[in-house]
Write a protein that binds this DNA or RNA. Structure first.
Lengths: 207, 207
DNA sequence: TCTATTATGTAGCGACCACTACATTTTAGG
DNA sequence: CCTAAAATGTAGTGGTCGCTACATAATAGA
């Protein structure tokens, strides 16, 4: 990590240079994994879509599993912005959640990429061999919900929402909403409908 | 279908009798498909769990795909009862939905079977080869949502809910809630929490 | 130019996939 | 008993899976 292995395109280490765009290939993997899941995409489909051969893929990404993890990281980086909006403490909690759900609706229904949420629908059902990945993705969802819980708890102690509010259930509720919206989007729901769902979901807000 | 091939256990057609309990084997397939999805379960795992050999499985169920379809049908028969409760027109719509969501919470968190909902999480991400099954499961979810829409529309015309209510969005909302609850249950949410989510979800009810 | 390093293309590894050919066994009906 | 019918166990089928051995090609630094 600290060695200048491939930090910049300018500074290149010895050896034959890569003949393909690693980031673009990763983006292709992201799209395939998003649509079809880990087990639903084969190395053959990946290499075909990337226009490279298996050895090139393995030299660049290590294994199918590490490629998947890297694709998830790219997803969070590219499309996971609504989570930071959800937690934004420069806004009132209610406004932050309301805006985040609207952003989720926009995001999940966007036509430029796969519908829904890669993480919400990730490995909900998977082969027993992929138990490690299954657990990782579940933990990813759990940690997001946990962060929201923290934000809501802060809102409770600051008096933004009633002191009797069950913030754990409320966090689970909005996690559920986002996960449900992801399924709806996967099944073809457009942004307009998703936004209406977001509005309805906000009626559960305390007070 | 109309020939008495295997209608009753009493009336048995010629040939060597089956050496295993077909319904029990189907129940095992249901459990495996529920937990791991269609692509996540292999014929080898199925035959091992059933205690039979591949030819017996194929003689009894035809193919992996038809076995999956039959397992889904069994799921709907055994565990899909909350849908009829959701549509029950002998009750007020609000009460029907409220009770159905409580039943969903009980069902999804029950320890005697896989957590969550087999249909809600079915084939959300799957291999391109299984596109037919993917579409079938999506249609199954869609038809359930459509039935709920019909029930809500009836409630609107009967004056049970305001005439300005957007029943399509409301149906999508409760479908989203159930699908989100399925993900929450899959990730370990217990019935107690799921019931609190159901209560929160009811706050979106019109008027 | 020489060496070290890295990526590439070709070809194929063993393991598993869904599925089946085939002979045998067990039943029902005659 | 016989024949027809259906299920069984054994032992595979061709195909695809994730992954790799190996020789070659292309670069950096000396």
């Amino acid at each position: 990590m600290d060695r200048p292995t491939k930090a910049k395109a300018v500074k290149r280490s010895a050896g034959r240079p890569r003949a393909f765009d690693r980031q673009k290939a990763l983006g292709i993997a992201l799209d395939l994994f998003w649509r079809h899941g880990y087990g639903g995409v084969s190395i053959g489909q990946l290499t075909a879509a990337m226009g490279i051969s298996p050895p090139s893929l393995y030299a660049a990404f290590g294994s199918k599993e590490t490629l998947y993890r890297e694709a998830v990281a790219l997803y969070l980086d590219r499309y996971g912005g609504f989570m930071s909006g959800l937690l934004d403490d420069r806004r009132a909690a209610r406004e932050a959640v309301e805006r985040a759900l609207q952003e989720v609706a926009r995001q999940f229904g966007h036509a430029d990429h796969a519908p829904g949420c890669m993480v919400s629908c990730a490995e909900l059902q998977a082969a027993p061999d992929n138990a490690a990945l299954v657990m990782e993705m579940a933990k990813l969802r759990q940690s997001a919900q946990c962060a929201l819980h923290g934000r809501l708890e802060a809102a409770r102690t600051s008096g933004e929402i009633p002191p009797t509010t069950d913030t754990a259930s409320l966090a689970a509720y909005y996690a559920m909403v986002i996960q449900g919206m992801a399924v709806q989007a996967r099944d073809g729901a457009k942004t307009a409908l998703l936004k209406r769902l977001a509005v309805l979901a906000m009626q559960a807000w305390p007070e």
